[in-house]
Design a protein around this nucleic acid. Structure first.
Lengths: 350, 350
DNA sequence: CTGTTAGCGCCTTCAT
DNA sequence: ATGAAGGCGCTAACAG
């Protein structure tokens, strides 16, 4: 059983009101502070968060709800957010839902039951209706990475469509026509956007330049290294026309690299590779990978600031959406087919 | 502002006590239940966790405290534990401390403040003294993966020393003498144990068999893919005598594989590779990796059961330690130098 | 089976 | 600057 104000009162003689002030920043005599401080130390006293929350209705806790605790993107963002709020006196409560929408709802309720002051989530469910439960209780919600159809709240996403388009244009400018995408399933907001951007860019190309129908083979799989690896291996062993692969997220990029290396296919010489996310190991490989980089810090920071704003100024109305740009990081994983063609004409290298 | 028992009372006419029973499993008339149920639905009522916790002093919540939310081993275990407790009506509260002992203490206090009923932790601090704070409050603690010097509690670890030894003996039996270890720093319990087991096995070897001092070069670095990659690259470019590398955890294994592939060093032909942890992508690579596999499910299950036992039967005394065995998974990443020697004699392969 | 009552530990006026 | 008193929403023990 832990100690309470009463214990401190017994030791110091001060009243409960005075002791409360000590913990909540009232003005006290130096000696009073000292006395209470000593008692606190002696008792190893900690304020009871439940009792405090019961009155103040604030828990100084933020709920974080993400699809997978194993996803590098999510956990990277998560860490930055946790850090942000720790520095401001908030703790974070982390839930993952295994990409299961039922568990997602459960977890949301769990967070609400724990009286979190606000929620930042990468939603799994595409409708997002479950999040209404938070707004009903006047708990602000910030969406990160994925938009949602039926729920309006502050949102931070990157311009996924443009990212896909940029990748496509880059490959096109290097002469690639037969390309493939390794992507997650299209019910994931980011995947759909990135694929659409990519495929649309190539479709326009078809209309204008090419007579033969150009292929954009889109392979959909799970968002894991292993899935990407399997998909890439499948693709590379069965489709010999592909000159370039666009991987729509980090795990898929890594899996594809593993598959290529295993098959002895070098990039860019054998097949060109265009990746996503400038994090972890991919950042240090050589040849370096050409990829679209997301501004992770900015994402985390924007989301955190949006929520903090709501926490400090109340009101859930007129939500903002922030769309951040991705950056093309040029490495050496995409070959220039035009150069190649020229070189062959000139009788140079292969 | 959310609704309370009083609101339900106003609608149904039942007293607070009866309503409380509805939420805590007392026996009520069918009609009474129906009435309350209807009111609850209408109000979208949820029990106030603060008020409940204040009385009952139970939260039906387990605290999980780990070093890094990015570590695959930890998060794999974590998911299994969360699943276990979810099925039994408990929720889990996840904290990571960035491998920072100060944050670890803070996070522990956070968990205690949230009135968790029990804690499962992979400790960062090697002393573990901070965990006393939990026992003082009569909160049971279960340690997973790492032992701790100054705190006695239920513990589940694998036999890391034997794992290292087994790896060493395997390499030795295949004729490897100049070997290297890529490891985390020795202040991490598992790393120290695995390295000791490995190095000891080779030291004995030296005493008995070899005249020349054999090398076990131990490289210590951070427990990330990137660190393993850098260490392996360094090792492989600067030390030509090494015939085999033992990687002491999953991330280091993966990093080493990336480095080898990048340098064009094939395993087992170029340098042999002995890994750790049979998870994720490493499981599917070919040539397959020879490695020591940890029984992840059993680890998670054992830890969960130990804690559940404490939760249901009280008493923190006479803690148990469970030590689980690792399994040698034989792949094709270690070459048999004896065979090779024979083959050369016979004028066969390279 | 249902109602009454007395706190759980803390915060917040309102006095002093 | 300090003390006294009431109540936050819920639980539990005891009546009825």
């Amino acid at each position: 059983m832990s100690s309470t104000y009463k214990d401190i009162q017994r030791i110091t003689g001060y009243s409960l009101g005075t002791i409360s002030k000590y913990f909540n920043g009232g003005s006290l005599r130096a000696k009073t502070k000292k006395d209470i401080e000593a008692a606190v130390a002696r008792l190893d006293y900690r304020v009871n968060g439940f009792a405090r929350g019961l009155k103040s209705r604030k828990s100084m806790t933020i709920g974080l709800l993400i699809p997978e605790i194993n996803g590098i993107f999510a956990t990277t963002i998560l860490r930055l957010i946790v850090q942000f709020f720790r520095q401001r006196g908030y703790s974070c409560l982390i839930c993952d839902c295994d990409s299961d929408t039922n568990i997602e709802v459960e977890s949301l309720d769990f967070l609400l039951d724990k009286m979190v002051d606000g929620i930042i989530t990468i939603p799994t469910d595409t409708s997002g209706k479950h999040l209404e439960r938070a707004h009903t209780r006047n708990i602000p919600v910030v969406l990160v990475d994925r938009k949602v159809d039926d729920f309006d709240a502050d949102t931070v996403v990157i311009d996924n469509y443009s990212a896909g388009k940029t990748a496509a244009e880059y490959l096109r400018d290097f002469g690639h026509v037969n390309v493939a995408v390794i992507s997650g399933t299209q019910d994931v907001y980011t995947m759909k956007q990135r694929c659409s951007g990519f495929v649309d860019a190539f479709s326009q190309l078809r209309k204008s330049t090419f007579t033969k129908k150009n292929n954009v083979r889109v392979m959909e799989t799970n968002l894991t290294v292993e899935s990407g690896y399997i998909a890439a291996k499948d693709l590379l062993t069965n489709d010999n026309n592909i000159t370039a692969i666009f991987c729509a997220n980090y795990e898929l990029t890594l899996g594809t690299i593993m598959a290529m290396k295993e098959l002895g296919i070098k990039y860019p010489a054998g097949t060109s590779l265009f990746g996503f996310d400038n994090i972890e190991i991919v950042r240090t490989l050589s040849p370096s990978i050409t990829l679209m980089a997301q501004p992770m810090e900015l994402l985390a920071q924007s989301a955190s600031n949006l929520l903090l704003e709501r926490l400090e100024h109340g009101s859930i109305f007129s939500p903002k959406t922030i769309m951040l740009d991705t950056t093309l990081i040029e490495g050496n994983s995409v070959s220039n087919l035009f150069d190649k063609a020229n070189q062959m004409k000139d009788g140079l290298a292969r």
